[in-house]
């Protein structure tokens, strides 16, 4: 509510927003679903940023993850399967003042929306992109997703997924003009919060893959990681996220990784045996397409009239 301004005078904001100002309807996700924790983190980050709820837009596609906007009391856009990113980019294109979040899942983003994922990353508009990756299609009831691990049985592949899963990190890190790539697990609250906060603060498209538990259909995926924390590796660096020792203790493996080193990020992502957690890549200087698409948006009507007549002059007989 209060803050010291640069000149040491006291800044009094007219409005102060609590968690309630960002939270909407009661979530309908299953008990034990990792999405609850992600939603809590989003609410918290919103509150910390104190961005007006009416300036916040949560965009989603279709799937369990994509219910998120309904649990916000901001503006929201619950659109079509796979198409959250084009809509979010469109929202941002001429409204740089809006704070845009995207909630999507492994099916929504990596399968039906894969083209948009690649291109939205390259556009690098100022959007916070959270991929709820539970390795399964939940809403349509247990079909194989691009990230379903090999041999995990599903309703479309009852004897187990046939192909090795897609690696979203190597794909994302291979795209030109990316600016922020991170990975977390839904069940570690402090790390989850810190990474989503950093992602939100970043100017550009921040891609956060969240390994998310689906206790109803593929309990084994989350459980395997929870039971064996050695399969994960916490990335530490002064330019990365800072978590305290109690969090660090939960992960037996640590690796010092400079997020500005794309080659090293790719190498970490490539290693199938150990999941890196934290910020893999961060480049605050990548060109942002929203700064280009919004050019001219403030032109006055008078100037437009002049421009219009100039345009018509080009065709005068």
């Amino acid at each position: 509510m209060f803050g010291l301004k640069g000149d040491w005078s006291l800044e009094v904001k007219n409005r102060y927003f609590t968690l309630d100002d960002y939270s909407g309807a009661e979530p309908r996700w299953c008990t034990g679903c990792g999405d609850h924790g992600i939603l809590a983190a989003v609410h918290r980050v919103c509150r910390e940023s104190q961005i007006e709820p009416e300036k916040t837009v949560a965009v989603s596609g279709i799937g369990c993850s994509s219910r998120l906007p309904h649990y916000m009391s901001t503006y929201g856009f619950h659109g079509l399967h796979g198409r959250a990113l084009p809509v979010a980019c469109g929202v941002k294109s001429r409204r740089p003042d809006l704070d845009v979040w995207v909630a999507t899942g492994d099916g929504d983003c990596f399968s039906i929306g894969a083209a948009h994922w690649i291109h939205a990353m390259r556009y690098n508009m100022d959007i916070t992109l959270l991929v709820f990756d539970n390795g399964i299609y939940g809403l349509t009831k247990k079909q194989t997703s691009p990230t379903t691990p090999l041999d995990v049985p599903t309703n479309t592949h009852p004897s187990g997924a046939l192909l090795p899963p897609l690696n979203p990190l190597t794909v994302t890190l291979g795209i030109t003009n990316i600016s922020f790539v991170a990975q977390i697990v839904d069940w570690n609250a402090p790390l989850r919060h810190e990474v989503i906060k950093k992602a939100h603060e970043h100017k550009g498209t921040s891609f956060v893959r969240i390994i998310q538990r689906c206790p109803v259909y593929v309990e084994s995926i989350g459980k395997a990681l929870q039971d064996e924390p050695a399969r994960m590796q916490l990335l530490t660096h002064e330019k990365g996220v800072q978590v305290d020792d109690s969090v660090k203790k939960l992960f037996p493996n640590h690796a010092e990784h400079d997020p500005s080193d794309l080659g090293a990020a790719r190498a970490l992502a490539e290693d199938a045996n150990i999941l890196p957690l934290g910020i893999l890549y961060h480049n605050p200087d990548a060109p942002q397409y929203d700064l280009m698409t919004s050019v001219g948006m403030d032109m006055s009507i008078d100037d437009r009239l002049v421009g219009m007549n100039q345009a018509l002059d080009h065709f005068a007989l």
Binding site: G79, G90, H119, G307, A311
Partner: peptide, 26 residues
């Protein structure tokens, strides 16, 4: 640009209309 507008060449036809819909929503 003479009237302050922008042409977005999208990655596909679906994204093209999705982008326009996003802008319209906003």
């Amino acid at each position: 640009h003479l009237t302050g507008g922008f042409v977005h060449q999208a990655e596909d036809e679906i994204a093209a209309i999705g982008f326009a819909i996003g802008a319209s929503y906003a």
